[in-house]
Write a protein that binds this DNA or RNA. Structure first.
Lengths: 191, 191
DNA sequence: CAAATTCCTTAATCTGTATTAAGAAATCAC
DNA sequence: GTGATTTCTTAATACAGATTAAGGAATTTG
């Protein structure tokens, strides 16, 4: 649980006994490459932390195209926060691209912890804020950028993820066709 | 403060003395049509509630185009939540389209209230969650829709706002050119 | 290691929406 | 109410990126 402990300690200050109480509520789940983590059509009831591995979060739009929302690796939280927060059915798919260890906590347990360990209420608020700001950046900073600019920004921020997933998944994260990403990369080489 | 009281009571349960304590921390600001509410290049320190009126929230992109993020009317919260949450300088402009009454609370006062009035911590969490889900919907549900579909969805959800602002502002909210919105509307009439 | 499958590239064509331009309609200010 | 300003419409042209198609490269599987 090394990465989880680091993540909590980096986010809030918490003493060791409280931390232990929190960790006790997490459950480990192991997945293999190509596994699907159940999410679609269910109501999300867990906050999920990637202790190790790589998971893609995506939706399928009304033209049957996959749009990648997040490519999560070690120390990322993945979840359909929308479903989790609003108790609605999830539209999100989660698939595993590397052997992956998930540590997850049930919403009920987390909400119980808010009462027992005040730092955790803070923790959740901060995590939701981070999700908000990340989504905001993605939605608006990329609204006025070309495919090439978006790709360069992605490489800049998340370049270390690039070699770990097929290129068409990067394309679907950038919301461009795989063919166009291929062209963008080709054109960049000539510059 | 009628709309604010209603909004708080609709969001959390709170007794009258606590409510009064909360209301005491809000300050009233009046603006006229065409006024600019200071925001750009400052760090947002207030949660702002529109008691009455209409305010447009927008950014200016790197091609000097305005992109409308939110068109807020009575009972809407408007803010650069990104700036407010992350203590960074705001990129957002706020302009007033009708005589407007804003009720605002300072971040310090609100955080103080979290300690004195627990319902307010809940209140903030719920409001941030709502912002998140709204942004999510806008970012992803509209990603795979044509301009026409987005316009129809807008009219469906926020049609009552349409007559209160110029059409080119709706266009910039939908992220299309005013000319194209004009065409979309024209084509819809023929259907 | 061969065959199958998945992934990537190239190139031609197509499409939705932007841009430019200009005039018409509506609204505002004196 | 008239002129000035703002907003909306129409239409021609331009362009970023999608789609389609097909072949090549890489990776996986038996």
């Amino acid at each position: 649980m090394h990465n989880l402990i680091t993540d909590i300690k980096n986010t809030v200050s918490i003493n060791d006994s409280d931390l232990q109480r929190v960790l006790d509520k997490f459950h480990k789940k192991e997945y293999d490459k190509s596994d699907i983590i159940p999410s679609y059509a269910t109501v999300s009831k867990h906050m999920k932390f990637i202790e190790k591995g790589l998971v893609r979060v995506y939706i399928i739009d009304n033209q049957a195209r996959e749009i990648t929302i997040q490519i999560g690796i070690e120390s990322a939280w993945i979840n359909d926060l929308y479903s989790y927060l609003s108790d609605t059915t999830s539209n999100i798919y989660l698939t595993v691209y590397e052997p992956t260890t998930i540590l997850q906590i049930h919403k009920n347990d987390l909400e119980q912890l808010y009462k027992e360990v005040p730092a955790m209420e803070s923790f959740s608020r901060i995590k939701i804020q981070q999700s908000y700001t990340r989504l905001y950046n993605r939605a608006f900073n990329q609204l006025n950028k070309t495919a090439e600019e978006r790709y360069l920004e992605f490489r800049d921020k998340y370049g270390y993820i690039e070699p770990r997933v097929p290129q068409y998944i990067i394309a679907s994260y950038l919301n461009i066709s795989p063919e166009h990403l291929s062209k963008v990369r080709h054109d960049l080489l000539k510059k």
